[in-house]
Amino acid sequence: MLKSASGAFANVLKRSLVPAVRVSAVSVRRSHGGPVESDEEFDNRYEAYFNRKDIDGWEIRKGMNDLCGMDLVPDPKIIKAALHACRRVNDYALAVRFIEACKDKCGNKVNEIYPYIIQEIKPTLTELGIDTPEELGYDKPELALESVYHM
């Protein structure tokens, strides 16, 4: 018992004194921030996220809300994957809402980016039977909401 304990202790001591791995000439730079994800990796990560077969409504909403909180417009392939995910959980409203949110993300470049997005996702829209917000008449205010102060 004592022998094994002292042996273990010696081992620990040895390991702490002698570096186990020689520092190689080309070492990984240990700096702030860590590795930076490229745009393609980001797109692929989110596409894979939405493409998961057993994704549920909570996770879809989480992914979409996260995307809407970022300083970017989601790539059409992410949007396509998200629309398919909406189809799998049978939530039509979610799909339309996400297209609206992506349109909102275009900011003041909406006239340049949004037609491109629609053009890219058009096959998916027709395949799944999703109407764009414009086709539903949601590009302009449809209903007025009574002010809560006047109820």
Binding site: Y92, E100, A101, G129, P133, L136, P141, L145
Partner: peptide
């Protein structure tokens, strides 16, 4: 199939989930 939904039904579904559209709020 979502293609079999009418426009009215699509709108009803949207309004069941959400109060106002982006354009409205």
């Amino acid at each position: 199939d979502w293609r079999k939904l009418t426009l009215e039904e699509k709108k009803t579904l949207y309004r069941a989930s959400f109060c106002q559209t982006f354009a409205e709020f």
